[in-house]
């Protein structure tokens, strides 16, 4: 059963790969990478059970935590052509709500 789930997730990854290669917009590619990442996280979780190594869940956790950093960088790259500007004003201490 777990194996079937893993295969289904891999099929989903393959579909994402098709979308990634096909585009047509760059945003479609970003979306595909993003979704591919989510599926990889799920696959790693499932796979941890399949091979009986809970360590794989740590890797999934890492991706779940950090995959969106790349997306934010891509957003900045697209919109501002630079990585070093601020997206948001710093709220100094004392601005607490």
């Amino acid at each position: 059963m777990i194996f079937t789930a893993a295969l289904l997730l891999m099929a989903g990854m393959t579909l994402m790969l098709v979308r990634l290669l096909r585009g047509p917009e760059l945003y479609d590619r970003v979306l595909a990478v993003n979704s591919f990442g989510t599926k990889t996280v799920l696959f790693l979780c499932v796979f941890a059970f399949l091979i009986g190594r809970p360590d794989a869940v740590d890797i999934a956790l890492l991706y779940a935590l950090m995959n969106f950093i790349a997306t934010i960088a891509i957003l900045k790259f697209f919109r501002y052509r630079t990585l070093d500007i601020a997206l948001s004003k710093m709220q100094r201490r004392g601005d607490h709500t």
Binding site: L20, A32, G37, T40, L44, F47, A56, I59, Y63
Partner: peptide, 24 residues
């Protein structure tokens, strides 16, 4: 974008090869 996916696939594949440290 593609190299991001390459890394994701590679990580998953390394796990399946039981090389969890490399995957990490």
């Amino acid at each position: 974008m593609l190299s991001g996916v390459y890394s994701l696939v590679a990580a998953a594949w390394f796990v399946s090869l039981d090389a969890v440290d490399v995957a990490f």
